[in-house]
Amino acid sequence: MARIKPQALLQQTKKKKGPSRVSVPTILLYALLLFVMLFFLFATYRHWSRRSLVHLQDTVSVEEGHSVLADPKKSAIPRYAVIQTTKGSLSVELFKEGSPEVVDEFIESCKKGHFKGMQFNRVIKNFVIQGGDVERSGATEDWTARGKHYSQLDTSLKHEAFMLGTSKTRHDGGGFDLIITTAPIPDLNQKINIFGRVIKGEDIVQEIEEVDTDELYRPKTRIEITEVTLKQNS
């Protein structure tokens, strides 16, 4: 029997102890299994993520629905009014937060058509224009008698020009009149309940202010309100 040389024996030992090589099909199989597992995990994550998002959106929608149902009038309150006159159109922002009761009364009067055909019966240059009952002229005449030129003017919002208000004496049987200031008025709070401001159509206010009037500040040509439209947006 032939003897194996030590060097050849060592090489044979290394070959026996060395790891067997992994076949290509086996590698592909393991890669496929890993891909399937990762895809399954990703699909599961997307499913639960979408379910959580839908649940959150439904919760928010329900809460918003409850808030609207709890106070349906809140979302329906008009914030603006468009006053159509024979001279042109005025857009007015309503101060619901500052004068809630007056704004509510104004809105109800609009819905009843109270202002349709209302005539501007007093036009005092650099002061106010007023629409309402021509027989109730005492308040405006009183303002005029006290003078319209003051050395100091209050600069607060309610004392600016183009503010919309109604006379504080309107409940004495005269209904809801409309007053638009054409200049700052220092004692405005004593005479008028301010509930809005003209934001478009200031030129129309100034055009009305320039009309010819008689000695009682009544316009010589008829100027009236033809329609008032309530709006949510300006």
Rank of each mutant, 00 (worst) to 15 (best):
A8T: 13
K16W: 09
K16Y: 10
P19S: 11
S20Q: 12
S23V: 08
P25Y: 02
L29M: 09
Y30N: 14
Y30G: 11
A31E: 14
F42G: 00
F42Y: 09
Y45T: 07
S49E: 12
R50I: 12
L56K: 14
G65Y: 07
G65R: 12
G65A: 10
G65E: 12
G65N: 14
L69T: 04
A70Y: 10
V82P: 01
T85Q: 05
L90H: 02
F95T: 05
G98N: 14
S99W: 00
V103I: 05
E105C: 02
S109C: 10
M118H: 05
V128L: 13
I129Y: 01
G138D: 11
R146I: 07
Q152N: 13
A161I: 03
G165R: 01
T166R: 04
S167C: 13
R170C: 07
R170A: 07
F176R: 05
T182K: 01
T182A: 06
I185Y: 06
D187P: 06
N189Q: 11
K191A: 15
R197P: 01
I199C: 05
G201R: 00
G201F: 02
E207P: 00
E207K: 08
L216M: 11
Y217T: 03
I223H: 07
E224H: 13
I225M: 08
T229F: 09
T229R: 13
N233T: 15
